[in-house]
């Protein structure tokens, strides 16, 4: 077999083995690739960065599943860190039944991390005052519409069963009018409904965090202003992490930046394989012609 035939027929097990190595090694050998921030991520960051502290809240809809957690979970963590660092209160909700498990994990871990480094009450985050997680609700569209009239009517108790009127944060949140931006981190087409109802009917600003494969569908919404920014896939999460570190809100870049190293490495590997395949194909075709 000629060399060019050989490189067109590399055994798939070799590809799989190299791929595994290229995914795992960057996790153990850390290196830093500077991020180029996409405009839609920058737009979302700038929006959250311009919310006056302590006034309006960020409504975070956490609707991603365990399968897509590597892409979406770091987005939630980075957003929570950003909001807490800027003293912007956060209200979490979920409309995907698989959402609450990961949402609770994200919120409690960020609160714990912030409070471990806090020196005063001002620096710390108190559940109920600075952050509330309302839990899961079925009937997404009906709930989205009703929240425009009254959030407490849709969620009379929070995720932990605490009546909503005993949570100080919820006493000053009636409906979407008290929400600066609603950000939907989702692994399914849920942002469609956020654009269709809260955004179109109630004029709420809506942002999104999506898996990379979903993102192309939502570019036009950013263009028309129906989405006030968007994070797309692990890259979007890594960009947001990079922005909050760059602006001094945290020292710790999250898991997406590390994950991006693996992703970049396998992109390079795939490109190399495609190039090799094409070189082989080019020479074998020339060989046939001759």
């Amino acid at each position: 077999m000629k060399w060019y035939d050989r490189i067109t027929q590399i055994d798939r097990r070799i590809i799989y083995l190299l791929l595994t190595l290229f995914i795992i090694l960057p996790l153990f050998i850390p290196f830093k690739i500077p991020q180029n921030v996409m405009p839609q991520t920058q737009q979302l960051f700038d929006f959250v960065d311009s919310i006056p502290p302590g006034d309006e809240v960020v409504l975070l809809a956490l609707d991603y599943t365990p399968q897509t957690a590597p892409e979406c979970h770091p987005m939630a963590i980075a957003l929570l860190k950003h909001c807490f660092a800027r003293k912007v209160p956060v209200i979490g909700v979920s409309f995907d039944p698989q959402g609450p498990g990961l949402a609770v994990e994200a919120i409690t871990s960020v609160i714990r991390e912030v409070n471990e480094n806090a020196r005063t009450r001002e620096d710390s985050v108190i559940y109920g005052t600075d952050c509330v997680y309302l839990g899961w609700k079925s009937g997404r569209v009906a709930a989205l519409l009703q929240m425009g009239e009254s959030v407490p009517q849709v969620f009379p108790v929070d995720y932990y069963g605490t009546p909503i009127d005993s949570l100080p944060l919820m006493l000053r949140v009636g409906n979407y009018k008290d929400v600066a931006i609603a950000i939907n981190i989702a692994s399914a087409a849920y942002p469609d409904d956020w654009i269709r109802y809260p955004q179109s009917r109630y004029g709420v600003k809506v942002g999104a965090g999506l898996t990379a494969v979903m993102a192309p569908k939502y570019y036009p919404f950013v263009q028309t202003g129906q989405l006030s920014g968007m994070m797309s896939g692990m890259k979007g999460a890594a960009e947001y992490e990079h922005l909050i570190v760059k602006h001094g809100y945290t020292d710790d870049s999250g898991t997406a930046e590390t994950g991006m190293n693996s992703q970049s490495m396998i992109h390079i590997l795939i490109i190399v394989f495609i190039v090799l395949g094409n070189i082989g194909y080019f020479f074998s075709r020339r060989g046939v012609k001759q």
């Binding site: 590809i15 791929l19 365990p66 957690a69």
Partner: peptide, 22 residues
């Protein structure tokens, strides 16, 4: 489920290598 989903990366690599020819 996540493991099955993760296999996608492997299949994408091998499919891209095999099919992306000029």
């Amino acid at each position: 489920s996540a493991t099955m989903f993760a296999l996608l990366a492997y299949y994408m690599a091998s499919a891209a290598y095999r099919a992306f020819r000029a």
